[in-house]
Amino acid sequence: MKTKNFISISLLLGLFVNAQVGIKTTTPNSTLAVAGSMGADYKQITTTTYNITATDHYITYDGAANATFTLPVIGTGTASYTGRIYKIKNISASGITLQASSGNTLRIDNTPVASFVIPTGAYAEVVNNSNTTGGTWDLSFTVLPKPSNVEIYGIQLTIPPHANGTAPIADWVSHANPAYDSGTGTDAWWIISKASTTFAHTAGYSNASRMMLVYEFQGTPFNVNNMYPILTAGNNSSFPDIFTASFVSLANVSGKTRLTVSVSRIDFIGSNGANNSNWTGTFLLNLLLARKLY
């Protein structure tokens, strides 16, 4: 019996001296080595006010309104919680205000804060530290909400001079004038055709000068299903011209995406001596393509 007790005590002392424990492994390489999966407490919350407990670990919120989660009060000894980690996932359509208890704070950077908002679809991880003068909880990791269900592409195209301007540029078809193309390589946009309509200014009515422009994307054609073009005309020249751009059509033609736009000059209709509303300069067309993914 004495020998057996001696062996048992020796094994126990060896365990504490080595300070390494293995679960399903005989060669632990850390203080605790687990050769297998691990589990911890999981809880899904729907109430809008929740006090996080000492036994919580992973918390999911799926309530119907904005919620407030409060971290435990930090104490001493077994209530010091140093190193304790909480994982919080927001799967609701509302926000979670994560706040420290009275007398405690969150530390996002060097400036402690009282609370942090976890938006819809986001994930946050906080860990308790031993800091007694700054934040007592570190916001150690955050993941932003899942990507938007909108895919966006943008480019700046050119609006060429009018065919009836003071210094006219003739209209064309079949990409006969590449001087006004935009972009390079597979991100290039060609102006396939340009059709100008001059102003009409009579005693009975006035029509603005306008052009019908067909742009063609030279890269892989876009998926134009559920795609919505947003157009704005710009002016970075010394001319005072003001334009409006109207969407006409967006379609894939012969393996290329084609955008048809009508551009009108809206600040001036008619003529004033040598000046007229058929524009001469080259201007900008800002294009944003937004496609709804689901």
Results as ranks from 00 to 15, higher is better:
228 Y>D: 00
225 N>D: 04
264 S>A: 11
136 T>F: 05
194 K>F: 10
22 G>Q: 01
15 L>E: 08
158 T>I: 14
26 T>Q: 12
196 S>I: 03
282 T>V: 10
277 S>D: 02
167 A>N: 15
84 R>F: 01
139 L>H: 02
47 T>K: 12
234 G>S: 03
263 V>D: 02
161 P>E: 01
102 S>Q: 14
241 D>K: 04
108 I>L: 14
213 L>Q: 12
247 F>H: 10
199 F>N: 01
204 G>Y: 13
99 Q>S: 15
139 L>R: 00
194 K>V: 12
287 L>S: 06
196 S>K: 07
154 G>V: 06
158 T>H: 14
197 T>G: 12
245 A>T: 08
41 D>T: 13
82 T>C: 00
20 Q>N: 09
8 S>D: 11
226 N>R: 05
19 A>Y: 08
130 S>L: 04
71 L>V: 03
271 S>Q: 03
225 N>W: 02
226 N>G: 00
128 N>A: 14
141 F>V: 10
241 D>I: 04
24 K>M: 10
178 P>K: 01
174 S>L: 14
55 T>R: 09
74 I>H: 06
12 L>Y: 13
134 G>V: 02
217 F>P: 08
83 G>S: 01
205 Y>W: 13
216 E>W: 00
148 S>C: 04
101 S>D: 15
225 N>I: 07
38 M>N: 12
106 L>F: 07
40 A>P: 00
212 M>H: 09
102 S>F: 11
287 L>N: 07
6 F>P: 00
76 T>Y: 06
71 L>A: 06
179 A>Y: 13
198 T>N: 14
37 S>V: 11
75 G>E: 11
270 G>L: 05
128 N>R: 15
276 N>M: 02
192 I>H: 14
74 I>E: 06
192 I>A: 08
120 T>K: 15
131 N>H: 04
7 I>H: 08
157 L>N: 09
185 G>H: 03
172 W>V: 07
85 I>Q: 09
156 Q>F: 11
218 Q>V: 01
41 D>S: 09
226 N>M: 04
259 L>T: 02
186 T>E: 12
10 S>R: 12
134 G>K: 07
46 T>P: 03
243 F>I: 02
138 D>L: 14
142 T>L: 06
33 A>E: 08
57 H>L: 08
41 D>P: 04
124 A>Y: 08
214 V>T: 15
165 G>L: 05
233 A>G: 03
161 P>Y: 00
82 T>D: 09
291 R>K: 13
252 N>K: 01
279 W>C: 01
33 A>Q: 06
121 G>E: 08
89 K>A: 11
230 I>N: 00
272 N>C: 03
120 T>Q: 15
162 H>W: 10
1 M>C: 06
198 T>Y: 07
44 Q>G: 05
5 N>L: 11
144 L>T: 15
138 D>V: 11
50 Y>V: 05
36 G>H: 03
63 G>S: 02
55 T>S: 15
177 N>D: 15
184 T>N: 12
23 I>V: 13
127 V>G: 12
157 L>Y: 02
122 A>N: 09
206 S>N: 07
276 N>R: 01
43 K>F: 09
15 L>M: 08
272 N>S: 13
11 L>N: 11
187 D>T: 14
154 G>F: 08
55 T>F: 03
22 G>S: 12
165 G>C: 03
51 N>G: 05
282 T>Q: 09
102 S>P: 10
